[in-house]
Design a protein around this nucleic acid. Structure first.
Lengths: 363, 363
DNA sequence: CTGAAAGCGCTAACAG
DNA sequence: CTGTTAGCGCTTTCAG
């Protein structure tokens, strides 16, 4: 006893399957007399009829499903984005096919092919890797595409990203306002749109604040990982160039900085201020709480879902780039630079401190 | 110019579509002469042929997709589970349809119906709500089902869960070993299998250690949320029954405890030891690091995926219950009970402390 | 307004 | 070993 089909419903209602189909589909119901429509609906109800989405899909070549491509769902960035996408699309009958690429372009291509073969109606890409701009346009084969949390310059895809530049501007303003002038940046991988963009934005924010950017205070990491952040900060501290604050490209990198400070017995923010990016869950609970740029991940997902719907309903493919507003969550990992508000110990032993640059106190 | 179909491949190879189909399918390739198979493969390659999964699905009534039902992907518990499921199934060509129920049974039923209509080949349920045992068997309609992170007693579904009881046994052993005798439990919602099970396990672990369970030291929360944990601990502290340690039903509840301690100026573990459950990301970075029961979420997902594969390949539906081993991550939120190892301050002012029961210091 | 007929792309049963 | 045939369940012409 398998599931009831449209034929069963039609038979019970005493009509032709085509009629039953028309009655069941809101779009075509108006073509049917109210009485027969009613009979069909009743029969469907009684049999517990559920249209077979696969058959419908084969016929209409639409599947009411959207492929969502993320690097790794386990990265706390993505669940809220995915959830936002789902909440935007589910009310319209869409279901999500979520795949993880692990940042492997070849794997990504395979997965996208697999999604296409399942006739997804659209693709939302939240993968961040750039790569060669022309080679790495994923082959969507004319499918509607929306980029979430990613922008590939010069590609005709609508995108939703956080306004990273504004966030970084605010972060730098905050640090400069506290008195910092020597600000280091631990930049993420430069083959990701976010890593590259944030470094650029950092440079421009510094310029706008009239603070010189010292190339010796910039480190690029090969991954967005805690270890990499730790390595970068160690390197900076050992580099001999003084600095009183670090702006990390994301919270994981900032966490790595915390580790180094703990290892070396340095205090945050007394010895060094740290700013992160993303406002990951629980970073407010750290000791000290991490000052970080809060990104509306859920909203980014939701907006990406809306953009997808727009393309799906009207057929338009406007490459509009939506920038979602961000905010700075100021917590206790940032404070005035050392010396600025004369901390007790140094007050009494001011000489060595004044003579030696800040970085000395880190070694 | 739409995508190439099997007909196109067959035409190019000069064979009948059925032959092409057999050549392309590893399972039936042996029925075909090597030469023609080769010709077909070559043609497919050249055309960039991708089998249409929808058509195949309609024909075979298998879809190579598995429905995964979770309460909320945004809860850090679930991404690793989902990832584990995916890693087990993806190599076998399966794709995941992930839906969030938000713990709404009606919504869950609708989603499962929607998954069924998409002919998923199986269902992995990671939703934890119990409800009436008979009413709340989701109507899988004969579909293979695996329960992940959930066990519904008396239902014929295979399940993969963490060995919560062992973990709780270890946690209680740890506390008792430190000298605690008055141990409170903040239990999660009792309409979830985990909430109920952990409370039971707590009781039994206490008995096994010969420590009396005081009903006044047990609080049930209505959700697995930080606020609820905070409320519960406040309530315990105000309850007038002394205790020196709290075992929280999960890490979120434990976080709520941290909040209360901070508010009241109490120190952990000097005034109160806290143990959590789950080992969520970053709880090791808290100050003090949270001692908690580490659950192998990824492995649970992976195992659930394996169990699903077993059902899919052999047709068996053994209701075996797999228990995954857990471990205790001991960190600094647990220590000897106050008074036990005479902390410095109290050493000098022993009298008031010795006179007043521990709970006094909490108020 | 409703019925008849065709076909989406594929695979499985049956012939040859 | 390969071709023929049929049909999965649905929607959409086209007739009536």
């Amino acid at each position: 006893m398998s599931l009831p089909t449209l034929r069963d419903v039609a038979a019970m209602a005493g009509v032709h399957p085509a009629t039953a189909s028309r009655a069941l589909n809101p779009g075509t119901r108006s073509l049917i007399s109210a009485r027969t429509a009613d009979r069909v609906l009743r029969a469907a109800e009684q049999l517990g009829y559920q249209p077979n989405a696969v058959a419908r899909s084969l016929r209409t070549s639409r599947s009411s499903s959207i492929g969502v491509v993320v690097p790794d769902l386990t990265n706390p960035l993505f669940p809220p984005i995915v959830r936002g996408i789902e909440d935007a699309l589910a009310p319209h009958g869409y279901v999500l096919l979520i795949v993880n690429t692990d940042n492997d372009p070849a794997h990504e291509d395979r997965l996208i092919a697999s999604l296409r073969s399942r006739s997804v109606d659209g693709l939302i890409l939240a993968t961040a890797r750039l790569g060669h701009p022309l080679l790495r346009v994923p082959d969507a084969g004319g499918l509607p595409v929306v980029l979430a949390n990613r922008r590939t310059e010069g590609l005709p895809f609508p995108s939703v990203t956080a306004d990273d530049a504004s966030g970084i501007h605010a972060a730098v303003a905050h640090l400069v306002g506290l008195g910092h002038r020597r600000i280091a940046h631990i930049a993420g991988p430069q083959d990701t749109s976010t890593g590259l963009g944030r470094l650029r934005a950092f440079r421009s924010a510094m310029h706008e604040h009239g603070v010189p950017v010292d190339g010796a205070l910039i480190r690029r990491t090969s991954a967005w990982l805690e270890d990499e952040g730790a390595r970068a900060l160690s390197d900076l501290l050992d580099g001999g160039t003084e600095f009183s604050a670090v702006f990390a490209g994301n919270d994981m990198l900032a966490l790595g900085c915390y580790d180094v400070l703990a290892e070396r017995g340095l205090r945050c923010p007394d010895d060094l201020s740290i700013v992160g990016f993303n406002d990951m869950p629980l970073v407010d609970k750290l000791q000290p709480g991490l000052t970080t740029v809060r990104i509306p991940h859920y909203d980014i997902g939701w907006e990406a879902g809306r953009l997808m719907l727009e393309q799906l309903t009207r057929g338009e493919q406007q490459a509009k780039a939506v920038l979602m507003p961000v905010s700075l969550s100021v917590r206790h990992s940032t404070g005035p630079p050392p010396g600025d508000s004369a901390p007790p110990l140094r007050d009494t032993a001011a000489a060595p401190y004044a003579v030696e640059p800040q970085v000395q106190s880190f070694e």
